[in-house]
Design a protein around this nucleic acid. Sequence first.
DNA 1: GCCAACGTTGGC
DNA 2: GCCAACGTTGGC
Length: 192
Amino acid sequence: MPKFKSYWLVKTEPDCFSIQDLAASPRKTTCWDGVRNYLARNYMRAMQLGDEVLFYHSNADPLAIVGVTAVVRQAYPDPTAWDSTNDHHDAKASPDNPIWDMVDLRLEEIFPAPLPLDRLREEPRLAKMELLRRGSRLSVQPVTEAEFQTIEEMAHAEKAAPAAKKQSTASNRKKPRAPAVKKKPTHTNLKR
DNA sequence: GCCAACGTTGGC
DNA sequence: GCCAACGTTGGC
């Protein structure tokens, strides 16, 4: 069956789960648990096997797309939703009424260098990208094929001129967040 | 630390 | 069903 590949982007805080953590995971695969936003969930439900997913580091230095993953399992219930000890516990969720889903993502590529947000903003072909919209908060979002290809191209043209590597100074360095607690997806690796 | 954006909650 | 208050995300 001819099938169209779709493209997506997921955000993660690298302090919580980085692309290096993904690389170190068994089979370089993780379940993308902890998503608790209906629109983000619905995008995950639309993901098909083989779809490609850009991997973005938020709340990080640098803010950047750092690689590409692929969907290796389509949406299925996220058991962390009814785990009362989980940070993202939802009292309304249960095995009979999971409410929240996750997909499995496998690492395909770590870019030779992170592709920073400020470089993305300079690229006219990405002007309409959801990630770059002011105030965009969605942690799972669709990406067009053209945007995906532009990003791959930029990521591989990057090598020679990594100009955008900002010096970390006292003024721009992020303070450690108050309680260094995990935020967004915990991505506890549930596979054994 | 600030604050814009926007989802969620709950009183009515 | 409206909408103000509140909470969270996440860049700056």
